[in-house]
Amino acid sequence: MRRTYAYFISLLLILFSSFVQVHAQDTIPIPLKIKVGLEVSGPAIYFSEKNILNAEGYIAADINEKVSAVFGAGYLNYKYSQYNYNYLNKGMFVRTGVDFNLLKPDKSLGKYWAGIGLRYGLSLFTSEVPSFQKENYWGTTSSSITKKTNWGHFVEVSPGVRAEVFKNFSMGWTISLRMLLYTGTGKDLRPIYFPGFGNGGKTVSKGINYFIVWNIPYKKINVIIKKEVPEVIEDTGTTGNGQQATGIRQ
């Protein structure tokens, strides 16, 4: 009887120890962070081309290892002129939404992000056409469109990547595809360019943003990693020397 108990207890111990071991191997600590990002391509463009000043940034908080809540804001001062018109637009915008990290936690390690962001954007701006000319059979007609304040809103899908370059500092880029919902200006005088959206003459606008991000870890979580179960291939064929072959594909 004593032998039976000893055998049973030792079996339980073995099972328990192997259970603990499996969990130790299958979890990974991932730091959750608050991220403060600054868009750097806007100021860079402004230094080369003084007509567009776009300054924007965001703050994001990791909800878990996959999802972050994002809030961004920015300012635009846009001047454009070509042979037949001048255009001015100035205003602010906010964007809010979520980022999804598509990398597995054992690949991202809290340092890499490759995923997709979904945003809703709201923009308040003042636009003006100080002068424009139209030439036709009857001659040239010159006119202008007075300053008006409008608001517009849009949705955005922004896939991108980010990588930690120094401790707690990341860099990365996102491609933004935005769909206009409303400009408030009517269909005839759509804004040529407006804050947060870009080219308002089109329903869909695209852009690329380049960010530097300061990461502030606030919590660590243990994420369970689903191990890939080795698939046993049972090969019924025989090898050249007539032996039956079995293999494991990782």
Binding site: S41, Y112, V161, A163, E164, G172, W173, I175, I208, Y210
Partner: peptide
Amino acid sequence: PRNLTIILSGLILFLLS
């Protein structure tokens, strides 16, 4: 390095845009 690849690929996209 992976970091550099990520940053440079964005730069190329930016120039193309």
